[in-house]
């Protein structure tokens, strides 16, 4: 029985296709100008998976995503969350089992900019070229 299982694992791993390469794009992660926190890529991952839910001052973090299918969101998911959208959906299904929902979405990067500029608890991302002085950039992803 054990040998049969080991043989199956070997076969399954061998048939798995190689990873696809992704073209990097420059993404800026933004917060409200009054938010002094610094974010590492790893901490950003924890925030967008909603494992880290509070800023250091104890206020709740409001992470914002773009809508599913947005090209920038797919880049962000791979670079920051290291997962494809189907894998993330599996993750969020497990969170839903505890009543935890994925980050809320906005329809455009302009909307993300406006929202983050107005909410001290929010964090969002957008193309680096769209950043203005109403927000603070805490991280640039290449």
């Amino acid at each position: 029985m054990g040998r049969r299982f080991l043989a199956l694992v070997v076969v399954l791993v061998l048939v798995a296709p190689a990873s696809r390469a992704e073209e990097p794009r420059r993404v800026a992660v933004i917060v409200h100008p009054t938010r002094q926190a610094e974010l590492s890529p790893e901490m950003l991952t924890q925030i967008y998976l909603r494992r880290k839910r509070f800023w250091d001052d104890g206020t709740p973090i409001v992470p914002l995503n773009l809508e599913a299918g947005a090209a920038l969101r797919e880049v962000f998911s791979r670079v920051v969350l290291h997962q494809s959208e189907p894998r993330l959906a599996e993750y969020w299904n497990r969170q839903y089992f505890y009543g935890v929902l994925p980050p809320a979405t906005l329809a455009s990067t302009k909307a993300v900019l406006r929202y983050v500029a107005a909410d001290p608890n929010a964090v969002g991302y957008l193309p680096a070229g769209e950043v203005d002085d109403t927000v603070r950039v805490v991280l640039r992803l290449d």
Binding site: E67, A68, W92, P102, A104, T105, A111, R114
Partner: peptide, 24 residues
């Protein structure tokens, strides 16, 4: 869950009320 936070006069041009994830 998350309230709308329009910022400035231009906010009317862009919907800034976040939606829940997934097809409505």
């Amino acid at each position: 869950m998350v309230a709308s936070h329009p910022a400035g006069a231009e906010a009317t041009e862009v919907a800034t009320t976040p939606s829940r994830e997934g097809p409505e």
